[in-house]
């Protein structure tokens, strides 16, 4: 089936030091307390799902991991070593990539140009189109993404293709941790399937993945562990084989649902 390599036992995961760990992260926007003290660990090669109602703070939390926001307080550590990001470029140097909810693609630029956005290959001041086209093709082939013509503008592509390009671009930086914010929320059914299997391929290459999604059924296709957020706090963590849809729904809306038979034991 779809679940991949790592369903390591409790002990195996807990003995590793986490690739990225967050402690007591707080972040406010004016009077809005977006995060009220969040602890979270991400381990090597795992896929961690983050769920929660709208405004629970999922995007804010991941933007702190990717250096887009600085936390008001709290600490981050990579492989046990404390870090402080000065910006997205800094996080990228430490091999953390994020695919934003809005994808950050330039609609008026072609597929090749978007894959190389901000790191164009050049000869003098001129773009080296041929070399970029070849390498773009390799980037996409590596993830088995099929886009017939790489010189079409991104605005002409479907939502799934655009998502795939954003993921391929992030993956091409060879991250250790790839964060994806609602990659499937705007997609049609077949496109969701394509993106989920793409996530599994990225994961299979040894990259840790964080997936934010509202489609709970997707979590069971790709994730090893799920963190539930509620009003700026992390309220629960579950191994994927120790939870089910109903349990998650209960945690997300903040009601203990009796009779699940699968609550924490």
């Amino acid at each position: 089936m779809n679940s991949t390599l790592t369903v390591a036992g409790d002990e195996a995961i807990n003995e590793q030091s986490p690739r990225l760990s967050l402690r007591a992260i707080r972040k406010s926007f004016g009077s809005v307390q977006a995060l009220r003290g969040v602890d979270l660990d991400v381990f090597s090669g795992e896929c961690l799902g983050i769920v929660g109602d709208n405004a629970a703070g999922k995007s804010t939390l991941t933007k702190i991991m990717s250096g887009t926001y600085l936390p008001d307080s709290g600490s981050l550590a990579i492989d046990g070593e404390p870090v402080q990001f000065s910006g997205p470029a800094d996080a990228r140097r430490r091999r953390i990539e994020m695919v934003y909810q809005d994808l950050s693609l330039c609609n008026h630029i072609d597929v090749v140009g978007n894959l190389f956005l901000g790191r164009e290959l050049t000869r003098g001041p001129f773009l080296d189109r041929a070399r970029m086209r070849n390498e773009a093709r390799q980037m996409l082939d590596a993830l088995d993404i099929r886009i017939p013509r790489l010189t079409v503008k991104v605005e002409q592509l479907s939502g799934g293709q655009r998502q795939a390009i954003a993921i391929a671009r992030a993956a091409s930086f060879k991250p250790d941790l790839l964060i994806m914010d609602e990659p499937t929320s705007a997609l049609a059914v077949a496109e969701v399937e394509a993106v989920l299997s793409l996530i599994n391929r990225v994961k299979a290459s040894g990259v840790s993945v964080i997936l934010i999604t509202h489609r709970l059924q997707d979590l069971f296709r790709v994730c090893d562990r799920i963190a539930v957020m509620y009003e700026g706090t992390k309220v629960a963590e579950r191994k994927i084989d120790q939870t089910n849809l109903q349990d998650l729904v209960g945690l997300i809306v903040g009601e203990a649902i009796p009779d699940t038979g699968m609550a924490d034991s």
């Binding site: 470029a89 950050s104 693609l105 630029i109 140009g113 901000g118 001129f126 773009l127």
Partner: peptide, 23 residues
Amino acid sequence: TTRYGRQVIAVGSNAEAARRVGM
């Protein structure tokens, strides 16, 4: 054909994206 031209288009197309990729 130039990198500068590409930056001009990127900024007009999606300024936030251009900033995020370090342009």
